[in-house]
Write a protein that binds this DNA or RNA. Structure first.
Lengths: 221, 221
DNA sequence: ACTCTCGCCGAACGATCGCTCGGTCGGTGA
DNA sequence: TCACCGACCGAGCGATCGTTCGGCGAGAGT
């Protein structure tokens, strides 16, 4: 899988030392209240979490928490906004660095999606399960972000089919299945589990390729 | 593992007129209070739904609702129990009727899973999103049911690989991806959408086959 | 006629919800 | 020295939560 990770044609004007930064995931950098809300939301959901519990997890009193965030809803929105901009940014950079070939771009988004849903598991999980808890105003904005992410995958798959690299008869459905598979990782993956991140990426990349009907996978005939 | 289902030879003792009943989905048959709870849970989640709202949707007063169900939690459990036994039953029958070949059994479970997640969309959705809202006692039982469903798919994929029908290098991961893809349908599918059920089944069956590396995918559907 | 059960409800219980009022406290700048 | 500001909190607001109490009326059994 290694040769598929970085583009074969080293074109681009990007400074080499900054290449692949979209792969780096350090400790989560989140304001204490948001980190507290994240942990609680991931465990019990938005409506299952009380403001008092978030405050306690953040080592704050309830008014202390409200000093930083005006409402419980704003905690959720702040969380999802950071999550989405991080995900979108990483995906865009990954694609941009992958070069022009749809196959390479495909590997890049899929790897980026997978990494994010492993290393930012809780964020990704809350981001996909608590959409219905968002106030109407922000919900449409957020769904717009999600659609943009899906469209990034869609367009690469379409391009791959047009270029003859992907053989699937149903590009749209295959693309959705790829995204679904990646998002699904956040529902069961554990960083200290039996499967390490790189191995899982390698396997699911192969599965994703199979979904779009990529030719040069490990099968015979 | 395959012959453990029922028939040793693949057909015979099943009355032909009852064949394929696992494909039939009429109107949802649910006690009014459960149907009310289902609609509310699907829209706003368990913790986002009040007992008063469920009662109102069921055209009952709150004590009237409690006359039939002892608690809010029992509504959720009753709902998920019916959902799971329906799903498991249909899957088992579908596999049993499919005969001995792993390929046919695979098509059968996948079709059954897909149908269920389309025609029982709300049930399936609540069943996969509200696990964390279950009380500890029943939660483990329910997860056991889920695991059993996943294992049904796993074992068929393993058998298919052993028989040489499936070429995937990662049967376990492919099997999980197949299930994830089917479950994911419940998050976006609309019965009156642009894609009708049969067309969607046909497409996603092809995608599922691709995931496990099934060879002869070329036929029209 | 009487009782009993069944299906149901108005009213209200204590607990908890999201949120706010009116502060205290340790800096910082003038 | 002192006014000021940002960070924080104890206490409590009104509302809503899941749940229960005591009762009502229709119908079946005797």
């Amino acid at each position: 899988m290694l040769e598929a990770m970085t583009s074969g044609t080293g074109d681009t004007d990007v400074r080499p030392e900054s290449l692949g930064q979209w792969r780096d995931y350090g400790e989560v950098e989140l304001p204490v209240p948001l980190a507290a809300a994240l942990a609680a939301f991931a465990e019990q959901g938005y409506h299952g979490t009380s403001v008092r519990e978030i405050a306690a997890r953040a080592n704050l009193s309830v008014p202390g928490l409200y000093h930083h965030y005006p409402s419980k809803q704003s905690l959720l929105q702040g969380l999802l906004e950071r999550t989405m901009s991080d995900l979108l940014h990483r995906s865009e950079v990954a694609i941009a660095e992958a070069g022009d070939r749809p196959v390479d771009q495909f590997d890049a988004v899929v790897e980026s999606l997978l990494r994010f849903h492993m290393y930012r598991r809780e964020q990704a999980f809350v981001g996909s399960t608590e959409i219905r808890s968002l106030d109407d105003g922000y919900k449409s904005t957020y769904i717009g972000h999600r659609d943009r992410q899906q469209r990034m995958v869609d367009e690469i798959v379409f391009a791959g089919v047009e270029a003859g690299d992907f053989a699937t008869r149903y590009p749209k459905d295959a693309s959705r299945a790829v995204a679904t598979m990646c998002v699904g990782v956040s529902t069961w993956f554990k960083l200290d589990g039996e499967l390490d991140a790189d191995e899982l990426i390698s396997r699911n990349l192969e599965l994703a390729r199979a979904l779009v009907g990529y030719r040069a996978t490990g099968d015979l005939a």
